[in-house]
Design a protein around this nucleic acid. Structure first.
Length: 702
RNA sequence: GGCGCGGUAGCUCAGGUGGUUAGAGCGUUGGAUUCAUAACCCAAAGGUCGGGGGUUCAACUCCCCCCCGCGCUACCA
């Protein structure tokens, strides 16, 4: 459908899962592009509602609560607050940021579930599933490990063996264990309600494969086609869990709606909550970005049920099936709702050569960035926008971030604006000078300027945000080039009116930048408007050379962007590696157990407390220290490979554990008579084993 | 394993339906300039478009095979 066919826009960004902090990859995937799109639509005078909210159900929430030793509610409260705050600081212009734990969402989800149920569109099925008695919960396949029946790999997951690649069902596993408690789970009967996706295949084929073949992105279309061609299966819409939305049926005790059933409905609930709040005046979650005066409580329906509404979901590629197949089928099946016009899913953004992962400590989390760069949300927006993973996975590096800031935002955009301001202050008392006769170069600049709004619009409307962003920067380039060609600073002494004409045009370009930058760099655009002493201007006014009237007084000038020094970037890179190392230490499993030994074998070892009397480096050796140790029995020489971990002077006088009856051995020409015992930490560092309190040398360890 | 998306200059990436000398930004080198946050402006160098076959007057683009990365399948944007 063409743009003109729609009366209003309903825009959603993927609901972030409130089980942990979100990182810049999430911003690049579903948030910044959506915000640019929405800000552009608003500037263009379109009727648009933009919603998001925290996704707070699902099994991972109680699991995270277990990990942090708290309640599920506390987990979602914590991360909802954190994510919410970060989005505000990043300039995300949601009309509402809601929560799926809110009653209105429970109500909406249950209503939709019941609509499907009452229409007879859900099927009931009873099956056996593994149950963990101690955790009192049914176990998803991912939470069961056991021996692979094919290759014998001892820790295959319930859904697939990672060693041989066979896809499994948890019931195939030999000796299954719950990953939550380590217990052997038991099989229990349980009833669930399924959505028979396969019966919507004809409709999906018509809707996606035929009507959206050319306007959906290839990655999205291909993924959908793959699902549809493979043949769809019934999918359970309920789960056995005590955290979530109760299944609204009499015989459904202890069952909740599947999180992927309720989460997308969160978009609808959020819209409902928005209109509740703007009509009642009680603002809890909404931050309306436009005037909703005259709206009615029921207006949310227009945005979700009227065919003239254009619905667009911004998501990451991992969510494609839910937003393109399952949720649309739910919406379609109700017979009441519209389905998305487009789902411009992005691929993933990598970081410094590796996948982003919060659990592996390899990410830049929103709150961390904002703590370190509190006044630079636009710089991150820009760095992400110019490198969005629109067609394939992309790569974020700190050096690139610095270069984008220093070479583009500062050197091209900020610098152009500054040049125009400084010259105007110098020669025209900070007032917009009059426009005289136009020369070829002026006409050319104005003609070029005129092309920008349409060019950038075109990119945004076809979801090419990277291209749109570079279009904006090209406008600043145009400004710089214009100044370089006209060289007003040379003419000041001979032809001031001519200088006025040039600066008038330069300032008009700056004013255009303040309008067209708004979707991309909202904070800087607003700062620039203050500098120009102008209010907001609609998109369709841009492209002209009369945004500023002659003699209009400019406001106080300031630098729009500032350089980021090398040291600042080095700190960030170091921080990244430090965090990664910390997480590795915390998550690395211990080495597997060694073979069993008998007590007799163990008691052959003569392990004692000793005291280091002397320690010196061994020449020509990097690793060895030559130690004199008081073993209680005697004083003996021990060669120990610890020179990379301890300085000799630091360990003199330390009590250690020593194996005294190890066969002597010549090392670097010196006979070593025993072995100092060490703990080798996960990062490879060594730790001395000392008694908890001063102990007499020679004390036997058993 | 099956399926999907990618593999294009030193780096990060564009190249909708095959059509003149394959593009941008950054980086590099050279020039010009000094109003400006040592910034801007101009120019050049730099690519057997992952590898191999095929279709065609013509292939980065279409088809087949192989290699590599990522994703989905299997609740992280």
């Amino acid at each position: 459908m063409s743009e003109g066919a729609f009366k209003r826009y309903m825009i959603t960004s993927a609901l972030p899962y409130a089980n942990g902090p979100k990182h810049i990859g999430h911003l690049a995937g579903a948030y910044i592009p959506a915000d640019v799109y929405v800000r552009y639509l608003r500037l263009s005078g379109k009727d648009v509602v933009f919603v998001c909210g925290s996704d707070e159900h699902g099994t991972a929430i109680p699991n995270q609560a277990l990990k942090e030793n708290t309640t599920s509610q506390a987990i979602v409260d914590k991360y909802d607050a954190q994510i919410r705050k970060c989005f505000v600081k990043m300039g995300m212009s949601f009309d509402i940021y809601h929560r799926t734990t809110e009653p209105i969402h429970h109500q909406t989800s249950q209503e939709i579930f019941l609509t499907l149920y009452n229409k007879g569109l859900l099927t009931e099925e009873t099956s056996e599933q593994y149950y963990d008695d101690e955790a009192k919960t049914f176990l998803a396949d991912r939470y069961i490990k056991g021996t692979c029946p094919k290759c014998g790999h001892p820790s295959a997951y319930g859904d697939q063996c990672e060693k041989c690649g066979t896809s499994l069902s948890s019931k195939d596993l030999i000796n299954p264990k719950s990953t939550l408690t380590g217990n052997s789970p038991v099989l229990k009967l349980t009833k669930h309600w399924y959505l028979p996706l396969e019966s919507y295949e004809p409709w999906l084929k018509e809707w996606i494969l035929k009507s959206h073949q050319h306007d959906w992105k290839t990655n999205v279309y291909g993924q959908c086609k793959s699902w549809i061609d493979a043949g769809l299966q019934p999918r359970a819409m309920t789960r056995d869990l005590d955290w979530g939305i109760k299944v609204p049926l009499p015989d459904a005790e202890g069952k909740v709606l599947y999180v992927w059933f309720d989460a997308p409905i969160g978009y609808i609930s959020a819209t409902r909550a928005l209109f509740d709040e703007v009509t009642s005046g009680h603002y809890r979650f909404s931050t309306p970005q436009r005037d909703f005066t005259g709206s009615k409580k029921d207006d949310w329906k227009t945005y979700w049920q009227d065919k003239e509404t254009k619905l667009v979901h911004f998501i990451g590629k991992d969510n494609i099936v839910f937003h393109c197949i399952i949720f649309p089928v739910i919406l379609h099946a109700t017979g009441e709702y519209i389905v998305p016009d487009n789902v411009p899913a992005n691929e993933f953004m990598n970081l410094e050569g590796d996948k982003m992962s919060t659990s592996r400590g390899w990410s830049i989390e929103m709150h961390e960035y904002l703590e370190d760069f509190p006044d630079k949300p636009d710089v991150l927006r820009y760095a992400l926008l110019t490198n969005l993973p629109e067609a394939k996975d992309s790569e974020f590096t700190w050096k690139d971030f610095q270069a984008k800031n220093n070479n583009e935002l500062v050197a091209i955009f900020g610098n152009f604006v500054n040049r125009a301001f400084v010259l105007t202050q110098k020669f025209f008392d900070n007032k917009v000078p009059a426009l005289g006769d136009l020369q070829e170069v002026d006409k050319k600049a104005l003609a070029d300027l005129k092309l920008f709004p349409a060019r950038i619009s075109e990119s945004i409307e076809t979801y090419r945000f990277r291209e749109a962003t570079s279009g904006l920067m090209d406008l600043a380039r145009l400004g710089n080039k214009y100044l370089a060609e006209t060289e007003p600073w040379k003419l000041a002494k001979t032809d001031l009116p001519r200088v006025g004409t040039i600066l008038n045009i330069a300032l008009q370009i700056a004013a255009n930048l303040s309008v067209m930058a708004e979707p991309f760099l909202p904070f800087s655009a607003s700062k620039l408007k203050t500098m120009l002493n102008v209010g907001s201007t609609q998109w369709h006014h841009a492209g002209t050379g009369d945004l500023l009237a002659v003699s209009h007084s400019l406001g106080e000038s300031a630098l729009l962007f500032e350089k980021i020094e090398d040291e600042v970037i080095e700190v960030q890179i170091k921080k990244l590696f430090d965090t990664k190392k910390k997480m590795e230490l915390a998550s690395q499993p211990a080495a597997p157990a060694k073979q069993e030994v008998s007590f007799d074998e163990f008691s052959k070892m003569d392990i004692r407390i000793g005291k280091i009397l002397k320690a010196e480096r061994v020449e020509k050796s990097k690793k060895l220290l030559k130690l004199q140790v008081d073993t209680g029995i005697d004083t003996r020489t021990v060669m120990s490979g610890i020179a990379e971990h301890f300085a000799p002077e630091d360990i003199i006088g330390k009590q250690v554990t020593i194996l005294v009856n190890l066969a002597p051995r010549k090392i670097m020409g010196v006979e070593s008579q025993g072995m100092i015992l060490m703990a080798s930490d996960k990062d490879g560092s060594l730790k001395l084993l000392s008694p908890g309190a001063e102990t007499a040398p020679g004390s036997v360890i058993s």
